[in-house]
């Protein structure tokens, strides 16, 4: 039975980088990993494929001439083997500003299920890398019953990312009540100073969540991204590679189910202010 993991977080926070590097670190241990990018821009798996962009599930179904053919796409055409045998797939979607990308995610994941892609690959881990915020029902698809069982939210010390994480917690609470995905923890990205660490810790405490790993800013990571690879591949001996190995090990074993306690926006704003005051008083230096 595959461990199905959904990774959410504010747009641009580094979800795809974290998910790809984590996938690579899990695969390094010999497990079969599948990574599915749930974003119309379809670049989640790029660094697992040496920078190659693959045809998306929805690109492929576009080739269908009839409604009947539309739902009978050959899954072998949309799954690609990447670094260390990681199975990569991208949902894809419409061009910006047209159509319904949310519906696209629903259709793409339903298609993968209907066509038996998961049975065929038989992965130990499935990682869903989902677009920014839960903007509509379609992007909540991986949260729903029977898809991603465990959800991680990527945050940073940036207030806007915490705001997005708070909103995501609301969605998780809603779907969790219906047997959908449960929150497993927060992953803190771009954490290089004690102050940044303190901010995400405070946020976690307030929302009754837990930060499972802190990922510092790293030159190797930025370079490997440019190269179209993960640090596990391009800089396996680096410190940052070890951070991802540690994160991968935690994700592989983690069973905790967190019921988050998201707050209303004004309350969050108030917390932001008080957090700043505490930081100033405690004298934590950058």
């Amino acid at each position: 039975m595959a461990r199905e993991i959904g990774v959410y977080g504010k747009g641009g926070i580094g979800k795809s980088t974290i998910v790809s590097n984590t996938s690579a670190a899990i695969a390094e241990k010999g497990a079969k990993v599948m990574q599915i990018g749930c974003d119309p821009k379809a670049d989640s798996t790029n660094s697992l494929l040496d920078g190659r962009y693959i045809p998306t599930i929805l690109d492929t179904v576009l080739e269908a001439d009839t409604v009947r053919e539309f739902r009978s796409v050959d899954v072998s055409k949309v799954i690609f083997e990447g670094y260390r045998g990681i199975i990569c797939a991208e949902c894809g979607g419409p061009d910006p500003g047209i159509g319904c990308a949310g519906r696209g995610i629903i259709t793409a994941i339903e298609l993968m299920k209907e066509q038996g892609a998961f049975e065929k690959v038989n992965p130990d881990y499935v990682l869903y890398d989902v677009l920014g915020d839960v903007v509509c029902g379609g992007f909540a698809m991986p949260l729903r019953q029977g898809i991603a069982k465990q959800v991680y939210i990527v945050v940073s010390a940036n207030f806007a990312s915490l705001y997005a994480a708070n909103n995501l917690c609301k969605a998780i609470v809603r779907f969790g009540e219906r047997g959908g995905g449960k929150l497993a923890g927060l992953i803190a990205n771009h954490i290089s100073t004690p102050e940044e660490k303190e901010i995400v810790n405070e946020f976690a405490a307030m929302t009754k969540t837990e930060v499972i790993e802190y990922i510092p800013y790293s030159r190797e990571l930025a370079r490997s991204d440019l190269q179209g690879q993960t640090v596990i591949q391009s800089a396996p001996d680096s410190e940052i590679a070890d951070v991802f190995r540690r994160l991968a090990a935690k994700i592989a074993e983690r069973e905790q189910q967190i019921i988050p306690a998201p707050v209303q926006a004004p309350e969050l704003r108030k917390w932001g202010q008080s957090c700043l005051e505490r930081l100033q008083a405690s004298g934590i230096k950058e």
Binding site: L58, P94, R103
Partner: peptide, 11 residues
């Protein structure tokens, strides 16, 4: 409108 058109737009 088909499912495909709903996703990709039907303009």
């Amino acid at each position: 409108l088909t499912e495909e058109e709903v996703i990709f737009g039907a303009e």
